[in-house]
């Protein structure tokens, strides 16, 4: 059975597979440009042409056999696994393995299932590393040792709280708001008890681990690729999370009677 024959025969399956692949790749934080390139590459390897419509909530894929014929349209809901660069790298590698003929289409489907079921970085490892990272970030803003230690523990508590809330199925916006509140109130200790000489920097940087940096960057990348709908969607998602962070921080400062001029 030649490759084009197989593609014509299984065109329904191919369209579903490619649409699901696209939904996962978008969900794990790939730009729309990469999405298009990878999906087109895989479609060609399957002996088909693909037209991709990327919408903020869904992906629509029209797959046509390379030799001509009726197109099959597959629509999939975008996956919401959060930013996962390990998936991004593995899915991109999968597209090349299929395109270069190193794996058969059936094996590609098996590999795809294996990739998307891989666990993310362990939660405890993330909390520890992100806390140290945020303390280092505090130092970049001019914080002293006391501020760095304060930020370390404030991040540790806030991020763990966010992980627990997300694990219990709470909305990400509520989790970010609560995490920002927890981190802000803990780091406000530097201002209230006079720890170190840079308590304002400790308070200001203690919530920066919650800034959705990758969506902001992806939004501009999509805009440059003329995917304006996705760009706007990603930008608004990032703005809403930043607003939740700001609300949590401001609430913490308000309750503890800390003036915003310390930031």
């Amino acid at each position: 059975m030649t490759l084009p024959d197989r593609a014509i025969q299984d065109i329904d399956d191919d369209a579903g597979f490619l649409a699901e692949y696209a939904a996962w790749l978008w969900g794990c934080g790939a730009t729309c440009t990469r999405l298009e390139r990878n999906v087109m590459r895989m479609a060609r390897a399957l002996g088909a042409d693909a037209d991709l419509l990327v919408l903020p909530g869904h992906v629509e894929l029209a797959v046509t056999p390379a030799g001509g014929g009726a197109a099959v349209v597959a629509v999939r809901k975008m996956n919401s696994c959060g930013i996962r660069f390990d998936l991004n790298a593995a899915l991109s590698r999968l597209s090349w393995e299929l395109a270069d003929g190193r794996i058969a289409p059936s094996e590609a489907r098996v590999r795809f299932r294996k990739i998307i079921s891989a666990p993310p970085t362990p939660a405890v490892e993330v909390v520890l590393m992100a806390s140290v990272a945020n303390a280092a970030f505090c130092r970049l803003f001019g914080g002293d040792l006391a501020a760095m230690i304060t930020v370390l523990f404030a991040t540790l508590a806030g991020l763990r709280l966010k992980q627990l809330m997300m694990g219990e199925g709470h909305d990400v916006r509520v989790a970010v708001l609560c995490a920002a509140f927890a981190s802000a109130t803990l780091s406000a200790g530097a201002s209230l008890f006079g720890w170190g000489t840079t308590p304002g920097i400790a308070l200001g940087t203690s919530v920066l681990y919650l800034i959705p940096g990758v969506p902001y960057i992806n939004a501009v990348s999509d805009m440059l690729g003329r995917h304006y709908l996705c760009a706007f969607s990603r930008f608004m998602d990032a703005c809403v999370l930043t607003a939740c962070l700001t609300a949590g921080l401001t609430a913490g400062m308000f309750i503890l009677g800390i003036n915003s001029s310390v930031l």
């Binding site: 930013i83 970085t121 280092a136």
Partner: peptide, 19 residues
């Protein structure tokens, strides 16, 4: 400190360790 911050923030996004 930027390098430390980058590695820590990379872990939040499940960046492969080899990177």
């Amino acid at each position: 400190f930027a390098a430390i911050a980058a590695i820590g923030f990379a872990s939040i996004s499940s960046t492969p360790r080899r990177a």
